[in-house]
Amino acid sequence: MALSSDAAASPAGEPDGREAERLFVGRHYDFVRKSWEMAEHRSPKRCWNWYAFLFSFSWLGYRKMYRLAWVVIFAHFFLNLGVDIYTMGEEESQWGAWLVSLGIQMAIALALGFFGMPLYQQHVKRRIADIQAKYGPEQAWAELARQGGTNFWSIFGMLFFWILLAGVVSPLILFFALSLSEAGRRAFPDAAAVPAYSTSPAWSASRERSPRASVTWPLCAQPLKRSTT
């Protein structure tokens, strides 16, 4: 509500620069701006953020970067699902699959921990530019306050959707994949067996009669000497 009153009391001119950023980011803008400035002095742009590292896609949803949050969720889901399907039915590979899944989770968390704030800066600049291009100067103030800020409830929404994927959808897919695999083995019991390499008697007989099989090299009575010319 404070942001809305500030927007209503703002001057009629078009919001620009730091004013637009402060209005769009909302709470903790000073901390966010300091993180952006730290990232500006590094190549590639990066700065560490514990919230992005620990909460991953939930943090993206909290900052209203919904599109990137869905990308991270589904990338995480399909990568882990691929590992589970690849090691399905192999007891000795379960530890390896767990380590690979943990590595995927850590890689995504570290990437967001280092590059989450620069990604948020790009998101803020893009949304401010879109709002200023779509709305007039007076309405832009209100839209920046309405479309910006944070969404606390999206944290629970993202977590619920992830639990649904990992706890319901993934086991169902693995169950059907295992059922199809067992049905395929029952229908084609010899499909997985690799036949041993063998030759027919006719081929062996023709090979023995071949002139190439009886070629011998004459013995050399004198040792070979290296030419000096």
Rank of each mutant, 00 (worst) to 15 (best):
M1S: 15
M1N: 14
M1D: 11
M1Q: 13
L3W: 08
S4E: 15
A20E: 01
R22E: 14
L23D: 01
V25T: 03
G26Y: 02
Y29G: 02
F31L: 00
K34A: 13
S35E: 08
M38Q: 14
E40V: 08
R46W: 05
C47F: 09
W48M: 03
Y51F: 14
A52Y: 14
L54N: 01
L54E: 01
F55W: 05
G61Y: 04
M65S: 04
M65N: 04
R67K: 09
L68R: 15
V71P: 03
F74R: 06
G82N: 11
V83F: 08
V83R: 00
D84M: 07
Y86F: 09
T87N: 13
Q94P: 10
A97R: 06
S101R: 12
I104F: 14
Q105P: 02
Q105K: 12
M106F: 14
F115N: 14
G116W: 11
M117N: 15
P118H: 12
L119V: 11
R126I: 03
I128H: 02
A129E: 15
A129I: 06
A129V: 04
Y135D: 06
G136K: 01
E138T: 09
A142W: 03
L144D: 06
R146G: 08
Q147M: 05
G148R: 05
G148E: 05
N151D: 12
N151Q: 03
F152R: 11
I155W: 05
F156D: 00
W162H: 02
L165F: 07
A166Y: 08
V168I: 15
V169I: 14
P171I: 04
F175V: 11
A177K: 04
S179N: 07
L180C: 07
A187E: 05
V194F: 12
A196M: 09
T199C: 02
P201Y: 02
A202C: 00
R209W: 04
S210L: 05
P211Y: 08
S214M: 06
S214Q: 04
S214E: 08
L219N: 12
K225V: 06
